[in-house]
């Protein structure tokens, strides 16, 4: 862990002004398997942070810790402290439902509800009571679809089923659905792995735009994608956070030999 740019002490005493998420000494166990080991990381607000690493290195697991999606897995156990805006999200007082409204998530495979495009977007605001009237809701739907960069493609068929869209459109719909609940952090678990290059390009542009309002954390298999969209990159290997820093620095001048081997294609 001595490659870490900051030690845990100086962060806890003096958190950086725009740090959104701080994780300290995070351990995750799946039954007897120790999947995440001693991860310390600070994720900044209004920044795209990429998690890279070979398959099974724990990057998705760690991502899912950030909105407690791992709670749904019985054998999964999380230790350590993860704070968003200095509030421990694993505190007993925290209801994961409220947390997930604040920390939106986009999944690997586009997973729109088998409902209309409108209902896909409106579902979150409805259950959180964000809209007082039908007009409010219409406005939220339009705003979210615009933010998802898909409004122009679907504005004439809002009541067509969301599952009838193409893969790339579905993924942007899912992003629009995630931003509809006004989250502060957006987690993306390999959002482009099921998409073709053109759709990937669209989603990447979208991620870059989303940076102005959200703290975006993206897990990706593609190092080019991490280089293209992120400002910060974290490299995971065998459950350890090996290196975390500015994306440029990670890709041009990695400090850890393992990072260097991975980005040059020797391991992974």
């Amino acid at each position: 862990m001595n490659q870490m740019p900051m030690t845990s002490e100086n962060v806890t005493t003096m958190p950086t002004k725009n740090t959104k998420i701080t994780a300290r000494d995070v351990q995750v166990y799946y039954g007897d398997t120790h999947a995440i080991k001693d991860v310390d990381v600070d994720i900044e607000d209004r920044t795209v942070t990429a998690f890279i690493g070979p398959s099974g290195c724990g990057k998705s697991t760690f991502l899912r810790c950030l909105n407690r999606m791992n709670d749904t897995i019985d054998i999964c156990r999380v230790e350590g402290a993860i704070k968003i805006d200095n509030e421990d999200i694993y505190d007993k007082k925290v209801d994961p439902v409220q947390l997930r409204a604040k920390v939106g998530m986009v999944f690997q495979k586009p997973n729109p509800f088998p409902k209309s495009i409108y209902d896909n977007i409106a579902y979150g605001p409805r259950i959180h009571g964000l809209a007082k009237s039908k007009a409010d809701l219409d406005e939220i739907v339009e705003k979210s679809l615009r933010r998802g960069a898909i409004w122009d493609e679907v504005k004439d068929r809002l009541h067509a089923p969301g599952t009838g869209l193409s893969g790339g459109q579905q993924q942007r719909l899912c992003i629009a659905r995630a931003v509809a609940t006004e989250p502060e952090v957006l987690l993306m678990d390999e959002p482009c792995s099921a998409l073709d290059p053109i759709a990937t390009d669209q989603v990447e542009d979208l991620i870059d735009e989303l940076r102005s309002q959200y703290s975006v954390v993206i897990v990706t298999h593609s190092m080019q994608q991490a280089a293209r969209v992120s400002q910060k990159t974290a490299f995971f290997h065998l459950g350890n956070l090996v290196e975390y820093g500015e994306t440029d620095q990670i890709f041009t001048n990695p400090k850890d030999p393992r990072t260097e081997s991975y980005i040059s294609g020797r391991i992974g």
């Binding site: 999606m69 749904t72 439902v97 997930r100 409204a101 939106g104 999944f107 088998p114 579902y123 259950i127």
Partner: peptide, 27 residues
């Protein structure tokens, strides 16, 4: 019912009961 539907519902902040009754049960 594909687990991705449950994930989707939980991901936008539905409670488990809401996920089941709004999405899983109809399917």
């Amino acid at each position: 019912v594909p687990p991705s539907i449950r994930d989707a519902a939980l991901g936008v902040g539905a409670s488990k009961t809401q996920a089941v009754f709004h999405h899983v049960l109809p399917l």
